[in-house]
Write a protein that binds this DNA or RNA. Structure first.
Lengths: 111, 111
DNA sequence: TTTTTATATGCCTTGACAAGTATATACTGC
DNA sequence: GCAGTATATACTTGTCAAGGCATATAAAAA
């Protein structure tokens, strides 16, 4: 298992990452939320940990996992070379920005 | 082979997509540029075609391939949920925008 | 028409990985 | 210590996909 692309190719791992993107969770919580057998969860978490995409802290017998998505930037960077195709001009990116974060004072003059 | 994540998990396919991102190419050009055996190239192109990530036109015996990266948006959309971690606040996205497209007149009032 | 160039496909082997099951480890409370 | 809870790992098995090689198809050139 090498690249971050391999990591996110697995649907269960994407589900785990998405779940952890909203809040940190214990293994048991992931297991119940995603209806996955516990060993499956643990094994995928192992892969994600080895890749540096999640980390965990110990709370008694539980492990609380949280996402550490820095490595995902590699994928984002790779995708960058295609953004210019996605409707061609700056407006697209602006819409993207607005979708991600509601408009702020940075909105310039209109029309 | 189902999701776009599986498609881009394969390094050779990423290489092909990257090459086609800069310009359209024939199979032979891809073969020579990437030092891949011809059947390997053709097979990966088949996968990419089936996924709608590339298309080709016929020029005599040659096929000219070009990228059609719309389906990659799915991956980009999925990554979106992690962008807020990538240095936490709106400025990060703005820098991202500036990196992608040089500043335009849309820049709002400063300081 | 024969040969050469360009690309696609079929078959086969091999390796990787995910799931299932069982079991090990570790911590808590009695 | 013992029972129960929470998580990790070992082992096996099935599946699937990538690569190598040969070959098929098709168009151009001679």
């Amino acid at each position: 298992m090498i690249s971050v692309f391999d990591i996110i190719a697995e649907p269960n791992r994407r589900a785990i990452l998405t779940l952890l993107a909203s809040a940190e969770r214990t293994v048991g919580e992931i297991e119940r939320r995603l209806r996955m057998p516990q060993p499956t969860v643990s094994k995928h978490l192992r892969v994600l940990r080895d890749a540096g995409l999640v980390e965990c802290t110990v709370d008694a017998q539980r492990r609380v996992y949280r996402v550490k998505p820095d490595a995902l930037r590699e994928a984002d960077t790779w995708l960058e070379q295609f953004r210019r195709f996605w409707s061609g001009h700056v407006d697209a990116l602006e819409r993207h920005l607005d979708r991600t974060h509601p408009p702020t004072r940075t909105k310039g003059p209109r029309t």
